[in-house]
Design a protein around this nucleic acid. Structure first.
Length: 255
DNA sequence: ATGCGTCGGGTCAGCAGGAA
DNA sequence: TTCCTGCTGACCCGACGCAT
């Protein structure tokens, strides 16, 4: 049994979602541009590594923020293989032994499956069992409830020797593996990733609208020809939301 | 039968934190 | 910069157990 500790670097649309929604592919808002992985054996010893850049198909212009952070340029990517080819290498790297995926935050695992499905590739060879190391590191390092520690901070707090820069997929995978080695294994649960559940549209990319609170209040102030107090504003907002739940509507009877 | 309190699950907006 | 997730806090409902 092996642990596959991996990290991904993504590129994304450089246009704001509001202004250019059509330019952001909601099926795949983050396109993988680099995958780094280390394979650990049962004794947590590194037995192989993978480091691949991916030629983008979806977002062919680098988001400056991503370029700045990762140091990856579009020229570096254009000479690389597309995701379909890299995926074959990923499967080769994982091999046929039983394995558990290890990630820093559930985001990477979600985006990996998203990218695989976006390219109409078969997800079945990939293990659905994973460990979110960030969650356990945050607990171990006594982060306040609901907060997660960043990889850099975790590595520093755990006195991990930092020789290479962060935000490089292979380096981050290596540091994640080092953190994994240092945290207690006693209460770690292996989670089964639910692909179908997680492929549903997320909160922010559904067609859901956002309440323009100030517009709502202004409308009331216009209608009543006066300012609404703070309490009134709260009541209006609450009434609006409760109305949307339709909980007080009486079903129409046919007889 | 009725009333009460608790619990779990649901709605929603908003915020903080972390990811690239 | 943009996106995502988890949490909070406001409220609701239905189910349940218990007391009257």
């Amino acid at each position: 049994m092996n642990y596959i500790v991996f990290d991904l670097e993504f590129n994304q649309s450089l246009n704001s979602k509001k202004e250019n929604k059509n330019l952001t592919n909601l099926k795949c808002p983050f396109e993988i541009i680099q995958i780094g992985a280390v394979k650990l054996d049962e004794n947590l010893q590194i037995i192989s590594i993978l480091n691949k850049l991916v030629k983008p198909e979806l977002y062919t212009v680098m988001n400056p923020f991503v370029e700045e952070m990762t140091g990856i340029t579009i020229d570096m990517l254009n000479t690389e293989q597309p995701f379909q080819e890299v995926y074959k290498e990923i499967l080769e790297f994982i091999g046929n032994d039983k394995n558990i995926l290890c990630v820093w935050g559930a985001c990477d695992i979600k985006e990996l499956f998203r990218n695989i499905q976006y390219h109409n590739l078969d997800i079945s060879p990939i293990s659905k069992e994973y460990i979110n190391i960030q969650f356990y590191a945050s607990k171990y390092l006594n982060c306040p409830k609901g907060t997660n520690i960043g990889l850099k901070n975790a590595a520093e707090l755990l006195n991990i020797n930092i020789e290479n820069k962060f935000h490089n997929a292979l380096n981050d995978a290596y540091y994640t593996a080092e953190v994994f080695k240092k945290i207690p294994k006693k209460n770690i649960n292996i989670i089964k990733y639910d692909v179908n559940k997680n492929m549903k549209p997320t909160r922010n990319n559904t067609e859901k609208s956002i309440l323009d609170t100030s517009k709502l209040i202004k409308q009331f102030e216009k209608m009543f020809n006066r300012e609404m107090s703070e309490e009134e504003q709260k009541i209006i907002k609450l009434a609006y939301m409760m109305g949307k739940t339709r909980q007080f509507e009486i079903p129409h009877s046919d007889n």
